[in-house]
Design a protein around this nucleic acid. Structure first.
Lengths: 204, 204
DNA sequence: ATCATATTGACCGAATCGGTTTATGAGAGT
DNA sequence: ACTCTCATAAACCGATTCGGTCAATATGAT
């Protein structure tokens, strides 16, 4: 694997993106190393040169993505932010940062979560137990719900925002950086719209 | 194909679901006829007996799904409903009806929309030109936007609801009928919540 | 008993799979 | 100029899987 890390960073990134995209959309078994190689614009032999086997590659990627997300959380997540909408926005900013670094990262992680192939299933389970549950667990913790109008069902608002937010992770097809920014702005505007209409007047 | 239609309807449905699921999640090339046969619980030879070739099967399904959606629209869509949220709910009821008949139908149609395989791409394009654009085009037409508070950006609300609604079509993994109903109820409640807070008071 | 048909397991050549080996070429050290 | 190293890719490997066929059996109506 040191072979791979000797590459210039841009090329590493290119290869990783191709791999994430392929595994993320086709799963472990249906992804062929030739596919990856063609997408990345290198020869199949190089993939094996860098990562030994397909399985090793798969778990290298898993480790890579988990670390990427972890780093981003440590870097950007501030649990002292207790305002509901600010917290949501923070979580989304975090997601966007990950996607901008590696567009298929979250798609890949999601596909890993549902991967059923016998050859990798067990090892995934043991790796996931480390840093899985906390992902969405802490996003909504320590929040101040008192600003909402009494008539508003906060858990319902949470669900709505979860659904919307999942839309970012689950792109039917990859979207350009430009599109991503546009959609993102729309999302932030939506948050403001909700805040303006669901909070008690004294908090506006 | 008359061979296939001689089957009892339940079995036809079972086979079609397996086919939609497979093509919908893996695309044309990565879906093998053996996969389908195993999932459907019949032998591979039967698939060819019913549908001649893989390609014929693929387009039989496309035709089938388009018809299914069309019928459901003709049956349930009432353009005299001008209330924004009622219309959204109607469109969702429609979607749910399709999903309950064939859970992977919309996933399949979505995957067809993005299918890039050379062997089928052109034929898809010519078929899609018939009944594609109108799908989301008429959903928002003829609506009465005057009930919203003046401060509310209606196009933003539309985008929000589109995102949420797409969540139903794009399930990372198939959900049971029970879950579907639950999520659906949550969605309808969300609509009410939004209506209660975004409409002018005189319309509540 | 007969015929037609539904169904399948075994089979086909061709393609693709994960993975290896070989050949090439560019660069570093001498 | 002459190695030696190593990144890279094309050609190759046996094994599997592909889309598709076929012969053989199971089933059921007459």
């Amino acid at each position: 694997m040191e072979k791979f890390h000797n590459l210039p960073l841009e090329k590493q990134s290119l290869v990783i993106n191709a791999e994430l995209e392929a595994f993320g959309t086709n799963g472990y078994k249906k992804t062929s190393v030739s596919d990856i190689a063609n997408t990345a614009g290198i020869s199949k032999a190089m993939i094996f040169h860098y990562f030994k086997t397909k399985k090793d590659l798969y778990f290298y990627l898993l480790n890579f993505c988990v670390n990427l997300v972890m780093e981003e959380i440590n870097d950007k997540f501030d649990c002292s932010v207790t305002d509901f909408f600010d917290r949501i926005k923070m979580a989304t900013v975090l997601k966007i940062a990950v996607i901008k670094k590696h567009p298929a990262c979250l798609t890949y992680l999601n596909s890993v979560y549902y991967e059923a192939n016998e050859e990798v299933k067990d090892e995934i389970a043991s790796m996931m137990s480390q840093g899985d549950a906390f992902r969405n667990k802490y996003v909504f913790e320590g929040l101040d719900y008192s600003k909402f109008k009494d008539s508003v069902d906060v858990t319902l608002v949470m669900k709505m925002l979860m659904w919307i937010s999942e839309g970012f992770t689950n792109p039917s097809k990859s979207l350009q950086t430009k599109d991503l920014d546009t959609i993102c702005d729309d999302f932030y505007e939506s948050l403001n719209l909700l805040r303006n209409n669901l909070y008690k007047e004294q908090y506006l």
